[in-house]
């Protein structure tokens, strides 16, 4: 196999990798907005992490210690 064919294959390879990533990324974006709209999950509330950040404020979501190492 010469350099030319290798480069062509690499080119196609890269194109499909990019296509794949493109699909994943937009699928992710779509799912974020869908879940927000259907009320499955509210993502916007996380910006309260900033507004409510004093040490004695109640955590937005308490950490479930059993799951974490």
């Amino acid at each position: 196999m010469d350099q030319e064919t290798l480069m062509t294959m690499a080119g196609y390879g890269k194109f499909f990798i990019l296509l794949f990533i493109f699909i994943i990324f937009y699928g992710y974006a779509f799912s974020l907005y869908k879940r927000q709209r259907s009320g499955e999950r509210d993502f916007e509330k996380y910006s309260d992490l900033v507004l409510n950040d004093s040490l004695d404020a109640a955590p937005l979501e308490k950490r479930d210690n059993s799951k974490e190492k």
């Binding site: 974020l32 916007e44 507004l51």
Partner: peptide
């Protein structure tokens, strides 16, 4: 957001 007291316009956008 902290200084202005506003929520981030779109947290989803920030993640994306």
């Amino acid at each position: 957001p902290k200084e202005s007291g506003q929520n981030v316009f779109s947290y989803k956008l920030s993640v994306l």
